[in-house]
Design a protein around this nucleic acid. Structure first.
Lengths: 239, 239
DNA sequence: CATTACACGTGAGGC
DNA sequence: TGCCTCACGTGTAAT
């Protein structure tokens, strides 16, 4: 209670002539004197005033160091949105993430380029498949290596009212979504609604389309064929 | 009095996932009670006790947020030496620097490889811009005219529980689905579930992802930027 | 005028 | 023991 006063006496002085932290340096040296003879009375008064003023200067140093670190962090991150403390960390996180993805992309590029050098004139084979790197050059010529779509469940059922429901579950890796969409596009169906849902590493596609009940089996094999064709790098699909 | 409880409810959450503060709490509670009915007399008593208990909870939240951010930062940095606060930032800084140098190295390697390709397969185009040009060079072949994604509505909203819902409506022509998927892939979000629905010439994408409420605006502009980048044929996106 | 961000001093706990 | 790290509540300043 009563020690609040002398604590806050220099607290005022502290805050009056500095507000930003980069200035405490000279404040630190000049003012720290007042803290010094504070430490000369280690347990002179009662409870709470006994150990301070050695702690507070080290704590102050700790804060200062930490802020300097944060400032340094801000200096290595290019896209700083706000000078805010939390924003600094957030931007750093996002920047690291972007660097990660970019690194992955670039590594794929490199292996792509190396492969391109290897097989620049001869498209001999792509027996070992390096997924991911292939999808990029797709338009040039097909010869694509893929991670195949593994169909877990495929149901084609009639709902009545000339409506057929296709529900398909498969794994979800790489560009499975894209390929799946292409597979269905290629069938030229009379689609009423279509939806894809992804969670826990799997993909769930549901399509409502116009059709009679006797189209069910045809449609099932068509879908299976389209997916198989997309899985096969030799096929004219997978443009 | 009664808001003490909900203050300290998330106060518990705060301290549970980080280390050894468990014991301060009930000691602190007794202290903060004295502040509480102090606040009933807004400036009845002396200086320092008038406006607390609204500030202190927000300040507590701020610290919590900041610590979570720091924790997240630690999660994206592979080589963490100590669980220390300052060490986290220091490690992050060094990691970013190492990534920088590695990036430079890799880019040099890429341009080397490209030079090798150029000599072997005689490519004539852009000699300037050798960084990033690797991506563009692939695209010189495909120079496709794209039908751009026309965003009709984009909503990014927080659901609480650290969950953000992104709901996007746009036109659906050509390979809009594919481009949209790529745009979201490039953002490296912590996706919980994702769904795309198509009907009547439009596309509806809904994504549930992990994130705080203060990430909303950032996320929105990121999505907008990713789509804009994808619409722009000159951009390094749209590989 | 409210919210936000910040630095401060302080006590506790871990070496 | 002393040092270090931390979360806390608080006053101040800027948005």
């Amino acid at each position: 209670m009563e020690n609040i006063d002398d604590e806050y006496r220099n607290y005022w002085e502290t805050n009056t002539f500095l507000q930003t932290e980069e200035l405490d340096c000279y404040f630190d040296e000049s003012m720290s004197v007042s803290y010094e003879y504070d430490s000369s009375s280690p347990e002179g008064m009662q409870s709470s005033s006994s150990p301070p003023s050695k702690n507070i200067v080290s704590e102050r140093n700790r804060r200062k160091k930490l802020n300097e670190k944060l400032y340094a962090l801000r200096s290595v991150v290019p896209n700083i949105t706000k000078m805010d403390k939390a924003s600094t960390i957030r931007d750093a996180i996002e920047y690291i993430k972007s660097l990660h993805s970019e690194e992955k992309k670039i590594k794929a590029e490199i292996s792509d380029l190396e492969r391109g050098i290897m097989t620049s004139s001869s498209n001999s084979d792509n027996s070992e498949f390096n997924q991911e790197s292939c999808c990029k050059r797709k338009r040039t010529k097909m010869v694509r290596c893929i991670d195949p779509i593994e169909v877990i469940e495929l149901r084609v059922s009639n709902m009545g009212e000339k409506t057929i429901v296709v529900s398909l579950e498969c794994n979800n890796k790489g560009d499975t979504i894209i390929k799946l969409c292409k597979a269905f596009e290629s069938l030229n169906l009379k689609i009423i609604t279509s939806s894809i849902n992804a969670f826990s590493g799997r993909l769930f596609k549901t399509v409502f389309l116009q059709g009679d009940e006797d189209d069910e089996d045809d449609l099932r094999v068509k879908i299976e064929d389209a997916i198989a064709a997309l899985n096969n790098p030799e096929s004219p699909m997978s443009y």
